[in-house]
């Protein structure tokens, strides 16, 4: 049995990587790999499959995945590489490795309900352009997010 079994058992979203036979179709069609040859999704999948996930979770380039799903559409084994990378990002976040920029965006959503807060100024601008004003913030997303594991990361 491969060493990555605990990880694969605990995270059902990672199960599909067992099917990966390293054909590298994911990396060869990846737009990020074309921009930065140091980014290699095939390698991330392999490392996770053999139990070396720590190296993936600590690699800041894990977050370069655009979630464009090109790799997933082309994977001949239906290993769902884009969903695997997403699950690995979630795991990296739990472990405290999420990039500050993404956490900052999430804090805005929790605080304002939107990435860009709608204030009186914005609503006046919208009305000047013939668009309806949007409703004011109620704090509901902050209440919902307080029920999730993400809350601790946003405070931390």
């Amino acid at each position: 049995m491969e060493r990555g079994s605990a990880l694969l058992t605990d995270r059902s979203a990672l199960n599909t990587i067992r099917a990966c036979y390293q054909c590298a179709k994911c990396t060869s069609g990846c737009p990020v790999a074309a921009l930065d040859p140091g980014y290699n999704p095939r390698r991330f999948l392999r490392l996770a499959a053999i139990g070396e996930e720590e190296a993936v979770l600590r690699d800041g380039k894990l977050w370069y995945c655009l979630a464009c799903f090109t790799c997933q559409e082309r994977c001949p084994e239906e290993a769902r590489p884009a969903e695997v990378l997403l699950a690995l990002k979630n795991l990296a976040c739990e472990r405290g490795f999420a990039p500050a920029a993404l956490l900052a965006a999430a804090r805005l959503v929790a605080a304002d309900g939107r990435l860009y807060n709608i204030d009186e100024f914005h609503n006046e601008y919208r009305e000047d352009e013939g668009l309806p004003a949007l409703d004011e913030e109620t704090g509901i997303l902050g209440k919902l997010l307080a029920l999730t594991g993400l809350q601790g990361r946003l405070e931390g």
Binding site: A98, G113, L150
Partner: peptide, 18 residues
């Protein structure tokens, strides 16, 4: 409100709830 997408990479369940 926000659809949840900006939270997805961090916590898929949080994005789903939103």
């Amino acid at each position: 409100r926000c659809c949840g997408y900006p939270l997805k990479a961090l916590d898929s369940y949080a994005a789903l709830l939103v």
